[in-house]
Design a protein around this nucleic acid. Structure first.
Length: 502
RNA sequence: UCCGGCGUAGCUCAAUGGUAGAGCGCUUGGCUGUUAACCAGGAUGUUACAGGUUCGAGCCCUGUCGCCGGAGCCA
């Protein structure tokens, strides 16, 4: 596999039109006839059709016998052909088999989520995961470029920590020689001290939460990018988050039209993500949730969704009739997969509609003091087509380090960013309490022992300044940007409450 | 932790308490432009596990396990 063998990546085929090239990859799909075989080969950069004619005797024999996902090298002339996906194909002169694959468990037909998750190491090779992982790469790079270009310094924070970040109940304990330690939930406390050294800092790494939650928004191990800025107040933190999200969405749109389209993402909805985002205080959100207008809106939405459900059920009936009429098995397959997807969508919508009255009732009964529930977030984020900043939550609902509001001591200077289209919280941040005495009081309020946080309190003893930052959950942001139903598809090997394999 | 659902062939799913099936995948043969190809044949089962009811259990009952969805909590 040396350079002079003329290896090219499939994505660059067009630039080699008419030339003799080699590609190496895996057999993604195959159709073979008596005298011609069509190999779909993927190499990680794309998928290419390779045509092997029986006149190329050795190549044809090998091609006909190869099972799916075998690895191989093919050599041939690149040529333009409208019948090939991508517009170019390779007229094969030779096939070199690297490895003959065993029977591959993942087919291009319908699979259930449990099966796919148990075969995640293989599922990664499919088109949907690769599309998502490419977007993940861009999102992470865009976040890092954004901070790097603004004079931030990357500061790596520890993953093994002695004490709780926020709530000890949700920490994973680990043995640390003869002591107990925990896996970090956030790098924030460390970043706060680092920002007094470097001014503007950020960290990017995995975080761990032992929350016993099994929902489409939760992982036990997820990645977070967290900036922290000295001399910043809440408005600065909000502006920073707004600019970052706009930049990230812009970068993904610029590079991944094809991937987003493959995922079925409504790209127009993403294009609307431009400054300024919506800003509401917690008080305004509470009022909104309780209002007659919102109730009316929700009830109308529920009616619309009921109609949508009926339309889906009608569609299902239509397809089920059609499937009996169709003879060709490929078409039948296609319809059966549509039926499968439709059934899933119907189940989801039914479950959603079933929960809806309770959500409406809980929104109407929303009381000052509580944190926003998942359903409340969904309600707010469905009402707008741009992300929504919610600020100034009640202090009892939020962490000890958030700065107390000057105007209203019941509130803290924090913000959550809710992604639109019902996706909900992707960012949580705040201005931090820089006053030592207030901070200690707040810790005691939360039942924490200030002595455990001596080093952290030192940040307030030696040149304390206003500062603040936020954390962006990479997987939640990706779920929204890719338009997915569940966070588990946005990370290569998801860790959820019920799964740690593979 | 709580509430609900599911568990049948490698996969996706059928099967009034009465002979365990279909499609795909795999395999054999055919076909020189296929687009999740097509045509003809073939192999494939501890019905999650352990008890119970019954002449008879994939189906009913009890328990266990696994997974899925939701609540609380959170990014």
């Amino acid at each position: 596999m040396n350079a002079d063998a003329g290896f090219v990546q499939i994505k660059d085929l067009a630039a080699h039109d008419g030339r003799d090239v080699s590609i190496h990859g895996w057999l993604f799909g195959k159709r073979s006839g008596g005298g011609v075989a069509f190999l779909q080969i993927r190499d990680g950069s794309g998928i290419c059709q390779c045509v092997v004619e029986s006149s190329a005797e050795d190549a044809f024999k090998k091609a006909s016998e190869l099972p799916h996902e075998s690895s191989l090298i093919v050599r041939g002339i690149v040529r333009k052909d409208e019948r090939a996906i991508g517009g170019y194909e390779i007229a094969v002169s030779s096939v070199e088999i690297i490895h003959i694959a065993a029977e591959y468990p993942i087919t291009r037909k319908a699979h259930g989520i449990d099966f796919l998750m148990s075969h995640r190491h293989l599922w990664l090779r499919s088109r949907r995961p690769t599309a998502i992982l490419r977007i993940r790469h861009t999102l992470i790079k865009a976040c890092r470029d954004f901070f790097d270009n603004r004079g931030f310094t990357l500061v790596d924070t520890p993953i093994l920590v002695a004490g709780a970040g926020e709530d000890a109940q949700t920490l994973f304990p680990v043995e640390y020689f003869d002591r107990k330690a925990f896996l970090a939930q956030t790098g924030q406390l460390y970043l706060e001290s680092a920002c007094l050294a470097l001014g503007k800092v950020y960290c990017f790494g995995p975080t761990f939460r032992a929350e016993k939650s099994k929902t489409r928004r939760h992982l036990t191990e997820f990645w977070m990018i967290e900036p922290e800025v000295a001399f910043a107040e809440l408005d600065d933190v909000i502006a920073l988050a707004e600019d970052m999200v706009c930049y990230v969405v812009e970068q993904v749109l610029a590079r991944h039209q094809d991937d987003l389209t493959f995922l079925g993402r409504d790209i127009e909805a993403l294009r609307k993500v431009k400054k300024p985002f919506i800003r509401m205080t917690y008080g305004e959100v509470a009022e909104n949730l309780r209002s007659a207008k919102t109730k009316d809106w929700l009830e109308k939405e529920m009616m619309r969704d009921k109609e949508k459900l009926q339309a889906l059920i009608d569609e299902l009936g239509r397809l089920e009739k059609q499937v009996d009429a169709v003879k060709k098995t490929a078409q039948k397959d296609k319809i059966q997969i549509q039926i499968h997807e439709l059934k899933e969508n119907i189940e989801d919508l039914e479950a959603d509609l079933h929960n809806r009255p309770a959500h409406i009732a809980s929104a109407q009964a929303f009381e000052f003091g509580g944190d926003l529930g998942g359903s409340d977030e969904t309600i707010i984020s469905k009402q707008f087509d741009k992300p929504v900043f919610v600020t100034d939550y009640p202090r009892e609902a939020k962490a000890f380090y958030m700065k107390e509001s000057v105007q209203d001591k019941r509130l803290v200077r924090n913000m959550d960013l809710l992604a639109p289209e019902g996706y909900g919280e992707i960012i949580g941040g705040s201005q931090r309490e820089e006053n030592l005495d207030v901070l200690v009081t707040r810790m005691k309020e939360k039942g924490l022992n200030p002595e455990d946080y001596d080093w952290y309190l030192d940040v307030r003893k030696y040149g304390s300044v206003p500062h603040g930052g936020f954390g962006l959950g990479i997987e939640r942001a990706l779920t929204w940007i890719c338009g997915l139903k569940h966070v588990r598809e946005t990370i290569p090997f998801p860790r959820t409450m019920g799964r740690i394999y593979p």
